[in-house]
Each structure stands twice: as structure tokens, then as C-alpha cells.
Design a protein around this nucleic acid. Sequence first.
DNA 1: AAGCATTCCAACCGCTAGAAC
DNA 2: AGTTCTAGCGGTTGGAATGCT
Length: 275
Amino acid sequence: MASSPSSQRISSTVAEAEVRRGPWTVDEDLTLVNYIAEHGEGRWNCLARGAGLKRTGKSCRLRWLNYLRPDVKRGNFTADEQLLILDLHSRWGNRWSKIAQHLPGRTDNEIKNYWRTRVQKHAKQLNCDANSSKFKDAMRYLWMPRLADHHRLHHQASDHAAMPAGQQPMGGYMESSGGMATSSSGSFASESYDGGFYSGSFASESYDGGFYSNACLGETMLNDDGNCWIQEAGFCAEAATDCQFQDTELSGWVQGFSEGLAEDFWSLDDVWKMQ
DNA sequence: AAGCATTCCAACCGCTAGAAC
DNA sequence: AGTTCTAGCGGTTGGAATGCT
């Protein structure tokens, strides 16, 4: 990222005069990339000195990991990724690096920014905290099913076409036992995520109402290397909105969402626009 | 067209844990 | 055992880009 010198924050003290801060220039990027290509990464302070960069090792490391690494995926999050983030965050909270491990090519910084700018924005619109159980339930019952359903509509045909020949659906991916904690177990190995639809990922361990496992999990199939393919998503937005929530307060609240905010937050167009 | 507000994201900061000495 | 160094994490900020009036 090039920038004009005037826009760069330069340290003022004599001791720090040699340390550059602020946006990286193209030259700096090239220097760092070339140096790492030749010497490898690690020992960042030594690396910074060795490369002749007037940056801290910390700054070099961050630049490399978040921007220059060849496998960094850029661009908007896909529906798959959004679903995964929502689910993983409901499980682990702000464990960004842990969440990022399940999204190949995405950095913790990017996921963190996504959460803060997109998800928390919606929470604010809804006048609740993004970490509140109320908001999490709304995500599970409305946002995620809608995203997943929309995903299904978009990809069903192509997924079918792309499925390896001769493979048959496994039947219910997870048998509902009336509680998500049981039905969700074992479905979340990162290895099983191949960038496709992450079936079985919507369950929250804290949720035991049984609704999600029944209404939301589709039939799946696994390919030879264990990757999970969705065969047919067994739930839809209607299932979610028709659901009778056990919590009457939440039910009314969600109903308010559906009616009052359908054109905004819960609009599929709006959700899809974020991709 | 200009000014203001908002959004988005790269980069920084402080802190912690673990390794090395 | 104590100190220093390094890597990594999560929170925060600055400013460019974009949208709105």
C-alpha cells in the first residue's frame, strides 16, 4: 500500500527517528517479500534489520501475515465464511485467531474487522449487544438460516453437478436427539471444511431447544477425503421464521425483526450484498 | 461542488505466554 | 530462578474511501 510521506506517521523522538510507522510503501513490501523469499520468515526483529527495513519486527510480521503472504485471501467474505464466522464466534467468542484457523486464507485481523464492522453494526441497529444471547439467538434463528438457505439456492445446482459420481447421501447428517449439544459434537473439524457449505456448523453448544438440529441441518455427504458436501439443505428461512420459540419474549422480539426490519437487516439482498 | 458523516480496514498498541539464556 | 527476547493475541485507532445532504 503506497502512501504519501505526509500521510505517514513518523516517530518524533530521536531514539525512534529511524523507525518508520504507518502505511507500507510498495518498496517496503517488495523488500520484505524478497527478503522472506530468500531467508524465510521468523526472527522478525533480525529480519527487519537484515532486510534493511526501518520497521519493527512486529510491524514486519503483521504486514507479512495480514497482507503479503501469498495465501492470503482477499475480498469479501463468502456466505460460507460468514456462516462459519457466526457459528464459531457463538462458540468461542472473540478468539479471532482460533476462528481464523478454520477459514483458510483469512486472517484474524480481517475476521475481527468483519465482526466489528458488519455484525456489531447490525447488533447496534437492533439495539442490543452483539454478545448478548438475544442477538446470538437472532443470528441462529434468522440470519444464519437465511444465509444458508440463500446459499442453497445459489449453489445447489452447481454442488450437485460438482459432486463426485457414485456418491450417495448419508441420510440425516446428524440425528436429532432433542439437543444440539449432542448432535453438534464431532462435526466441526477444520479438515472437513473445504470451502463449500459447512453443514452441521450452525449448532450452538449452548442451545438445547432441538429446533436447529431438526429444522436446519441438511443431508450431507462426505467425499473421499472426508470433506463435507451438502446434498440438500433441509431447512429454510420459512422454517426459521415459522418456528415457535420457547422463549415468548424472544419470539415476540424476533417477530418484530421479521416485520419491522425485514427490509433492512434480515433482507436477503442485504445479507447477500455483504459478499 | 462542497462539506459533513459514516464505513472500512491496515496498522498500531499493550499485554501475555513460552522459549532461550 | 530471574531476565530478556520473540511470537502471538485481542483491542483500538487513523485515515482513505464512500455516501449523503
